[in-house]
Amino acid sequence: MTDLQTIQMLHAANVIAEDEIDASVEAFLNGAVSEPYRFRSGHRLNLIKAVRSHPGAQEFVGRANVGTLLKRPFVRAAILQARPLKG
């Protein structure tokens, strides 16, 4: 059975730590996304898919004239709303 909880829900339940969310955002922004991101809890998330699935993040991150500081909150929102796989 697929876990339908979002990263944000897992964070609120203390399953995923704040530092892991920050690290996943940085991994995406640094281009380290060839493999699913793995959280210590065993959850994994395809960061590219998470950002592409989030309308605001997809549009904003794709802009060439936007810097990392402006992209970061959009990437974070996409990751928080994503539903990771367990295991």
Rank of each mutant, 00 (worst) to 15 (best):
M1W: 04
M1C: 07
M1R: 08
M1I: 05
T2R: 14
D3N: 11
D3K: 01
L4P: 01
Q5N: 13
I7E: 09
I7G: 08
I7N: 08
I7Q: 10
I7M: 07
Q8V: 06
Q8P: 00
Q8S: 11
M9R: 08
M9H: 05
L10E: 09
H11I: 03
A13N: 15
A13L: 15
A13D: 15
N14A: 13
V15W: 04
I16Y: 07
I16W: 06
A17E: 14
A17C: 04
E18R: 13
E18P: 00
D19H: 08
E20S: 03
D22W: 01
A23R: 09
A23W: 00
V25R: 04
V25P: 02
E26C: 05
E26S: 11
F28C: 05
L29H: 02
G31V: 08
G31L: 07
G31P: 10
A32V: 06
A32S: 13
V33Q: 05
V33W: 03
E35L: 08
E35C: 03
E35Y: 07
E35I: 03
E35S: 12
P36D: 14
F39C: 04
F39V: 02
F39H: 04
R40G: 08
R40F: 01
G42F: 05
G42D: 06
H43P: 02
H43Y: 15
R44Y: 13
R44S: 13
R44E: 13
N46F: 05
N46A: 11
L47P: 05
L47C: 10
I48N: 12
K49P: 00
K49D: 12
K49H: 08
V51N: 11
R52K: 14
P55K: 14
P55F: 12
P55G: 14
P55I: 11
G56Q: 13
A57C: 10
A57W: 08
A57Y: 05
Q58F: 15
E59I: 11
F60G: 00
F60L: 15
V61K: 00
V61D: 01
G62P: 06
R63I: 06
R63P: 07
A64K: 13
N65L: 07
N65A: 12
V66S: 04
G67Y: 05
T68G: 01
T68M: 04
L69T: 11
L69G: 04
L70M: 12
K71A: 03
K71D: 00
K71Q: 09
R72N: 00
R72W: 00
P73N: 12
V75G: 02
V75P: 02
R76F: 02
R76P: 01
R76K: 15
A77M: 12
A77F: 04
A78E: 10
I79W: 05
L80K: 13
Q81S: 15
A82W: 02
A82N: 05
R83V: 15
P84C: 08
P84H: 10
K86L: 11
K86Q: 09
K86S: 09
K86W: 07
K86T: 07
